[in-house]
Amino acid sequence: MKLSFWLNGVYRHDDVEPDTLLLDFLRDKGCYSVKRGCETANCGLCTVLMDGKPVLSCSTLALRAEGKKIVTMEGMQKEAEEFGAFLADEGAEQCGFCNPGFIMNVFAMEKELENPSEEDVKEYLAGNLCRCSGFVGQTRSILKYLEHKKSQKKEEAEE
């Protein structure tokens, strides 16, 4: 079947089998940040943004991307590097295997929630699993990152 969609800002036309999962399709297109973890839609490793909303690509058919804008971490390198520095500063990067899906959810949360509390952050990211930590460092890094972004917006508004 034909599939037309945006992938990381590039409009694409591709052929896809009707039963192909979005995860497999994206990895075939070189988006290796999209990872297979639990295969039960419980770990968040496969998270991508579809029209700005987090989607578990392991349980989404590729054909659902028809006409949509799909963003993986490959399409957000600058933003990922900026947030990654906050993770590293808090010692929260650990092995890094869960980071791509985790980071994609942080970006979605940043757009969706205004001034989230620590509890809001924990609730929003409840579907992301990390085998290395208890999310204490990640939570600290997110709160510091969001505060940094808020102060950046305030400075830009004052200019």
Rank of each mutant, 00 (worst) to 15 (best):
residue 7 L to Q: 15
residue 7 L to G: 10
residue 9 G to Y: 01
residue 9 G to F: 03
residue 10 V to T: 15
residue 11 Y to F: 13
residue 12 R to M: 10
residue 13 H to S: 13
residue 14 D to Y: 05
residue 15 D to C: 09
residue 18 P to T: 03
residue 19 D to H: 13
residue 19 D to R: 14
residue 20 T to W: 12
residue 23 L to A: 03
residue 24 D to C: 12
residue 24 D to K: 11
residue 25 F to N: 12
residue 28 D to M: 15
residue 32 Y to D: 08
residue 33 S to I: 03
residue 43 C to F: 07
residue 50 M to S: 07
residue 50 M to H: 02
residue 51 D to W: 02
residue 54 P to Y: 08
residue 58 C to P: 11
residue 58 C to L: 10
residue 60 T to R: 10
residue 66 E to K: 01
residue 68 K to W: 05
residue 74 E to H: 15
residue 77 Q to G: 07
residue 81 E to I: 00
residue 82 E to H: 10
residue 84 G to H: 00
residue 86 F to S: 08
residue 88 A to L: 05
residue 88 A to I: 05
residue 89 D to A: 13
residue 96 G to Y: 11
residue 97 F to H: 04
residue 98 C to K: 00
residue 99 N to H: 08
residue 101 G to K: 05
residue 103 I to M: 08
residue 106 V to I: 08
residue 109 M to S: 01
residue 109 M to Y: 02
residue 110 E to K: 05
residue 112 E to M: 13
residue 114 E to I: 03
residue 115 N to S: 14
residue 116 P to K: 10
residue 119 E to V: 14
residue 124 Y to S: 13
residue 125 L to P: 01
residue 140 R to F: 13
residue 141 S to Q: 02
residue 142 I to H: 02
residue 145 Y to M: 03
residue 148 H to R: 14
residue 153 K to E: 14
residue 156 E to I: 15
residue 157 A to E: 13
